[in-house]
C-alpha cells in the first residue's frame, strides 16, 4: 500500500464523508488483521466465494458427468478425490456444490438479518403492546427445535432447495429479533437517543437511523457465527432427502448417498463432509474476529 493512501485513510481530520467512512473501515481492518485465526477464517470464506464463482473453470469434470468404468474409485491422479457410485468425480461435485452452499447462506442472510433486526428494534424501542405482540410471535417460533420445524415445513411444502432455504430462514430469525431487542433496550435509554427525541425526530426515524445501526454489528457477528449452523442444517435437510434433490451436488445430499459405501469406499461420504467442516470452521473463525473488531464496547 502506498504511503499516500494510508495517510489519507488514517487522517485525523477527514475532508469528506467518504474519507471518514473509508478511514473508519480501514481502522477496523487494521485491528482485524492482527487476529491470525480470523484471517484464516476470512481466507477460507473468500476461497469459498472464489471457488463458487469460478466453478466451471476449476472443476475438471461436470457435476453430473458419469465415467462408469471408474465407479467408486479411490482418490487417484485421474480423480483427485475419487469417484462415487455413478463414476462422478467427487472433487468436481464439491466445487459445483459450493455454489449451492453459498447460495443458501446468502439467501438466508438477506432474509433473516433484516427481519430479525426490524422485529427486535421495533419491539424494543416502542415497547408496550408492539413489544408484546412481536415477542410472543417470536416465542412461538423459538418454541420448536430448529431442525424439527424446518423438517415439518419442508415436508409440508415440497422437498427442494428453495423450500429448504425458506424453512431455514423461518427458523433462524427469532434469535436475531431477541438479540436486537436486548440491544435496543440498552440503547433507547442513552442520552444520544434522548437528544434526537428532543430534536423532534419521529419514532420510526429514531429506530431506523439511530437505534438499528447500534444493533447491526452484533447481528453481523451472530450471523457469521450462525453460518456454520445454517450450512449444517441445509446439509442435514439434504442428507434426509428433504433439501437438494439428486443429482444436485449439494454436500449434504452427497454424504447421504455416500453413507451406503461408508465402510468400503470411505471417500464418497468423507470428502463432502470435510468440505462442510472446513467452510463451517472458516465462518466461525471469521465471526470470532469480527466480534472483536465490531464490539461497540471496544472503545
Amino acid at each position: 500500500m502506498s504511503g499516500g493512501l494510508q495517510a489519507w485513510l488514517l487522517d485525523e481530520a477527514p475532508g469528506s464523508r467518504g474519507q471518514a467512512r473509508a478511514g473508519a473501515f480501514y481502522r477496523g481492518w487494521l485491528a482485524f488483521r492482527q487476529n491470525g485465526l480470523a484471517m484464516v477464517g476470512l481466507s477460507i470464506v473468500l476461497g469459498l466465494v472464489f471457488v463458487a464463482i469460478f466453478a466451471p473453470l476449476l472443476a475438471p469434470y461436470g457435476p453430473s458427468a458419469q465415467d462408469l468404468d471408474f465407479r467408486l474409485n479411490p482418490p487417484s491422479a485421474r480423480h483427485w478425490l475419487g469417484t462415487d457410485e455413478l463414476g462422478r468425480d467427487i472433487l468436481s461435485r464439491i466445487i459445483w456444490g459450493s455454489r449451492i452452499t453459498l447460495g443458501i447462506v446468502l439467501l438466508v442472510v438477506v432474509t433473516v438479518a433484516p427481519v430479525g433486526l426490524a422485529v427486535g428494534t421495533l419491539a424494543g424501542y416502542f415497547g408496550g403492546w408492539v413489544d408484546a405482540v412481536l415477542m410472543r410471535i417470536t416465542d412461538v417460533f423459538l418454541a420448536f427445535p430448529r431442525l424439527i420445524l424446518a423438517l415439518a415445513l419442508v415436508a409440508a411444502l415440497k422437498p427442494g432447495i428453495e423450500n429448504a432455504v425458506l424453512a431455514i430462514a423461518l427458523t433462524t430469525w427469532p434469535p436475531y429479533a431477541r438479540l436486537a431487542r436486548a440491544e435496543t433496550l440498552v440503547v433507547r435509554k442513552a442520552d444520544y437517543i434522548a437528544a434526537v427525541q428532543a430534536q423532534g425526530a419521529s419514532g420510526l426515524r429514531i429506530v431506523l437511523r439511530h437505534v438499528a445501526p447500534m444493533c447491526v454489528s452484533s447481528t453481523i457477528v451472530r450471523m457469521t457465527l450462525d453460518m456454520a449452523g445454517i450450512i449444517l442444517t441445509a446439509a442435514g435437510l439434504g442428507f434426509l432427502g428433504l433439501g437438494a434433490q439428486p443429482p444436485s451436488p449439494e454436500w449434504g445430499a452427497m454424504i447421504s448417498s455416500g453413507r451406503r459405501f461408508l465402510l468400503d469406499q470411505w471417500w464418497v461420504a468423507t470428502m463432502p463432509g470435510i468440505a462442510i467442516f472446513v467452510v463451517s470452521l472458516g465462518f466461525n473463525l471469521l465471526g470470532d474476529g469480527l466480534r472483536d473488531v465490531l464490539d461497540p464496547k471496544r472503545d
Binding site: 444520544y192 434526537v196 430534536q199 425526530a201 437511523r209
Partner: peptide, 27 residues
Amino acid sequence: QMVFQDPYGSLHPRQTIDRALAEPLAI
C-alpha cells in the same frame, strides 16, 4: 432545543459530527 449534561453520552458513537449536525436539519 436541549443540551445534555454528558457530552460523552449525548453524541451517537457511530456517527460523524457532520451526520450529527445534518440530522436536525433533515428532521
